[in-house]
Structures are given as C-alpha cells and as structure tokens.
C-alpha cells in the first residue's frame, strides 16, 4: 500500500493465477483433504482475486500500473493449456480436465510477469523478491515430490511433475540474474 507504484507487478499474471486457483479448487467443498488444505485453498483464492480486484479497481494503483508494458495476451497461454488439458489428462471429467488445465496454466502463468520485468528497466526490490519467492515455493514442491515418490507406493503424477518442472525451469534464468544481483549487490536487471 505504501509504494503505490505497482509498476513492476503484472496484472496479467495475477489474473492467470486467479484463474489457476478458480479452476483447480472446484473440488474444495466436495473432497475434504484436511483443514490445512481447505484453509490454504481459501487463502490462495482470496489473495489472488483481491490482488486482481485491487489492481483493477483501486484508482491510485490503477493509475500507476504499467499497462502499456503489461501487454502479454492471456489467450496465447490459456487456449493452448485448455487444448492440452482436453488431450492429456488422467480422467475425462469436467473437474479433472479443469484441474489439469490449472496445472498446465500455472506452469506458464509467470511469463507475463517475467516479460514485464524485462521491459521495465529498474526492477524494484519488492517485485524482485515477490517473483523470487514465487519460484522458490514452486521448487520446494519438487523436493516434496521426490520425498513422496520414495516414501509412498504408487505415488506417480506425471502431469504434475512435468508441469512443475517446466515451471521451475522458467524461473531458472530469473534465479540466475536475481542471485547474481544479490551477490554482487547490484540492481537487478534482466537481459532484454
């Protein structure tokens, strides 16, 4: 709220994340996994939708949001993911295809944000940290998948694993430049 220049944050990516959670948590009220699982789903949904609402509605933020540079077209990500989900899924039911779509979409949802960072020369710290921790969170999943693969029989989820791996790869070069800027204590800039 303090630094109202939402220059670095991509509204496109925020909207894609809201779509990811909306299509992934359709089973929230039908399949109870655990209190933690339900609470976190509510947190993910409320936080992603409130960020989108805030960036769209709030006059102060909307004015400073960098819409001229945040021009990545959603449909170039949403449509291929939807088609892929219709072709490759674990079960051909509405909920399962929606869930698979959300898995594919989450893998590429960060792209508008990374493109925006490349376009805005000076990346402010908050945005850089935000993207870094988004990527770090995702890479921790890979550790979790390895652990579960070796401790749980029949724990095989190719769709989740491959999408999660692709998503982490997309962050790889960002991590490289981010950690370099942190190590050399210089401003984070991404190559054009």
């Amino acid at each position: 709220r303090k630094n109202t220049n939402k220059r670095g944050v991509s509204l496109k990516t925020q909207e894609l994340y809201a779509l990811v959670f909306a299509t992934r948590y359709l089973d929230m009220f039908t399949d109870f996994i655990s209190l933690y699982n339900t609470v976190m789903k509510l947190i993910f949904l409320s936080s992603s939708f409130s960020i989108v609402w805030y960036m769209r509605r709030h006059k102060l933020v909307r004015r400073s949001y960098d819409k001229d540079h945040d021009t990545f077209r959603h449909q170039f990500l949403v449509l291929p993911c939807l088609i892929l989900a219709l072709l490759i899924h674990e079960q051909f039911t509405f909920k399962e295809v929606m869930w698979t779509f959300s898995i594919y979409l989450e893998a590429v949802a960060i792209l508008p944000q990374l493109v925006l960072l490349q376009r805005t020369r000076n990346i402010d710290n908050l945005t850089g940290q935000y993207v870094f921790f988004l990527g770090a969170y995702r890479s921790l999943y890979i550790l979790n998948w390895i652990y579960r693969y070796f401790t749980e029989p029949h724990y095989v989820h190719w769709i989740t694993w491959i999408s999660g791996f692709v998503q982490t790869l997309l962050y790889a070069d960002f991590f490289y430049y981010y950690l370099n800027s942190w190590k050399n204590n210089v401003k984070l800039t991404l190559p054009a």
């Binding site: 089973d27 789903k41 993910f44 039911t93």
Partner: peptide, 10 residues
C-alpha cells in the same frame, strides 16, 4: 465406475 482421482496437493 472410475475411481475419482484425488489431488491432495495445493
């Protein structure tokens, strides 16, 4: 019927 695929991860 088909067993429902359970997704227990966020």
């Amino acid at each position: 019927g088909l067993e429902t695929v359970e997704h227990d991860e966020l």
